[in-house]
Amino acid sequence: MFKAVTVIGLIALLFGCAGADRPFANVSCHGENWKELGMQTAKALSSIRTFDTYIETCGSSLDPTAKAAFIDGYARALIDICTKENGRKLGAANQELPNVCPLELRADFQQGYVQGKRDYYEKVRELKKISDDQENRSLQHGQYGVGDPSKAQK
């Protein structure tokens, strides 16, 4: 029982960072802060094609400056997102590698991601080791409990 609780707790710790915000669905076609929305979309690691849904939804009522502002915000956010450090965080959280970084930023980001993944598997191994150790200890504890030599002598 203790083993199960510990492993679940550690795994929860490992995945604690997972699950970022997603861009909100309710967007008004006019008066929206498109740049900010672009930034949020990027931060949520959603594709730039998210904007296509706004085009489809809004049609001709879409603010004519929306696209440029959205792309601008999205591109600016990617500069902070597509870093080696962020890649490592995502990998370490065992998240999927997002396909949002432009080619020139991709190499560092992917390198960080691979390192993060390595960190993740290392942690999983450590957890498994801890779990196995606990199991062994409890097994040993069980053996002594059942056939206690001192009790047997009595």
């Binding site: 094609r49 792309i71 990617l78 432009p102």
Partner: peptide, 8 residues
Amino acid sequence: YYDLELSP
């Protein structure tokens, strides 16, 4: 394609 989706 969006420009960001294209390589330089």
